[in-house]
Design a protein around this nucleic acid. Structure first.
Length: 422
DNA sequence: TCTGGGGTCCTAGGACCC
DNA sequence: TCTGGGGTCCTAGGACCC
């Protein structure tokens, strides 16, 4: 398992190497909370998810460099890292934006320690992103090995191989139960109450008890931790749902304001689904007040609309999303967040014409043109009238770094750039 | 003033059928 | 007094991941 170290903050350092060794935090949309920290920021005691404004004093006193999240940059860097990793094994699962699993089947006679270091060195050389590597007989154990590599960089040089049962047991006894991949807050609380404190305690539980008290998922995990390969690398699959959801920079009261946002979210969803050449059969809309503000009246609701025909048209998806909004909207509340989720996909080529209701066939051509224009200008030049024509709202992202990767065209140029910087 | 966004999978329970 | 039983499908909600 390969994991990028402090991925977002490493990305920010990339184009400004003077930031290396400095405390850095990256903030969520609207600069609300901390979503990534460099080691130095962690050392200052800035927790994950910290509310940004409450830490302004800490940031100023310690010269913390604060960035608004630049997801375009992180996505771009993630692709570069993953492309390097794929060279090292035919089987690669991209687990998240900054993590991947490689299957090292048939590598038994390789020096795995050496191979791990090779991977690490090549990723750093080609992308500038530091990574940690954990190698073990199963997926869950490789995550544990990875954690050891990350925790003890001096001793492991960022790569750890768990190749004996003694190492496995020692590592699991060291691993707190809440740090086990797949055991979240609820389950670890329950397990702790029944005396299960470490990964090892969990791995020796009774199988039927695990299924009864938790679920089959945790049993699979348990067996994987015992060293019995149970979790497999999943091959990349088309998405089953696509969402665009946002918190607002201020509270919204009027349905017109929400309609505008929901339309924009629906358009964003339909752009994403057209990229995977599918159509959707369901649209879900939700709205929420700010549940952190306990003193305010709370309301949240959602609705799933089954479409009369599969579509990927901006116009149609937006229309149904707004219909849903009108059905759940209630006046008198201060809305802070909303979202559109589309589900139940079929390939565009499988869409059959129904006898009664159909997606407007003209839309397909129209969408192609819209996508083409918007892609070529990388801006939203063509929009629906119900969208924010003047774009009076804008997310508060005050500390945005530039996406310099846009200006570096080829991979070769990028490698040169990285080499030059480091 | 101010608290992220985007996913997956499983289970329990209800509806419905014969 | 006494209210079938088994299967399937769907949905909402919960738990988890980063």
């Amino acid at each position: 398992m390969i994991d990028c170290n402090n991925f977002y903050s490493s990305c920010e350092c990339l184009f400004n190497p003077s930031l290396n060794g400095k405390p850095i935090v990256v903030l969520s949309n609207n600069d609300g909370s901390v979503i990534a920290r460099s080691n130095e920021a962690k050392a200052l005691g800035v927790p994950m998810g910290a509310v940004a404004y409450k830490y302004d004093i800490v940031f100023q006193a310690n010269g913390v460099h604060v960035f608004s999240a630049n997801f375009a940059l992180y996505g771009d860097m993630s692709n570069r890292v993953m492309n390097v990793l794929k060279e090292f094994s035919p089987e690669c699962e991209i687990y998240s934006v900054d993590e991947a699993f490689l299957k090292l089947k048939g590598f038994e006679y390789f020096d795995l320690e050496e191979y791990g270091r090779m991977i690490k060195e090549k990723v750093t050389r080609c992308t500038g992103i530091p990574v940690s590597i954990g190698i073990a007989p199963t997926k869950a154990l490789s995550k544990v090995a990875n954690r050891i590599a990350k925790k003890y960089p001096e001793r492991t040089l960022g790569s750890y191989v768990m190749d004996t049962d003694e190492k496995r047991i020692k590592a699991l006894k060291w691993l707190k139960i809440e740090e086990v991949l797949g055991i979240g807050r609820k389950h670890s609380e329950k397990l702790r109450n029944s005396g299960v404190r470490t990964g090892y305690d969990f791995s020796v539980l009774n199988d039927t008890g695990v299924v009864r008290n938790m679920s089959i998922i945790e049993l699979r995990l348990k067996r994987d931790l015992m060293g019995i390969p149970t979790l497999y690398l999943s091959i990349e699959q088309p998405k089953k749902s696509i969402a665009t959801t946002r918190s607002f920079e201020r509270n919204l009261l009027k349905i017109e304001d929400l309609t505008e946002r929901v339309t924009t979210f629906a358009v964003s969803c339909s752009e994403k689904i057209r990229k995977q050449n599918s159509c959707c059969n369901e649209v879900r809309v939700f709205i929420q007040t700010n549940f952190h503000r306990k003193e305010l009246e709370q309301y949240s609701n959602s609705i799933t609309i089954k479409l009369p025909f599969p579509t990927n048209s901006n116009i149609e998806i937006a229309k149904f999303a707004v219909e849903g909004l009108e059905r759940i909207f209630k006046t008198g509340y201060q809305y802070k967040r909303a979202g559109v989720v589309i589900m139940d996909f079929i390939p565009e080529s499988d869409v059959q014409l129904s006898l009664f209701e159909n997606s407007n066939p003209k839309h397909r051509q129209l969408m192609k043109v819209i996508d083409l224009v918007n892609l070529s200008t990388s801006q939203q030049k063509v929009r629906l009238a119900s969208q924010d024509m003047k774009r009076i709202w804008k997310m508060k992202n005050l500390k945005y770094s530039l996406n310099i990767t846009n200006t570096i065209n080829s991979n070769k140029d990028f490698c040169k750039y990285i080499l030059f910087k480091h």
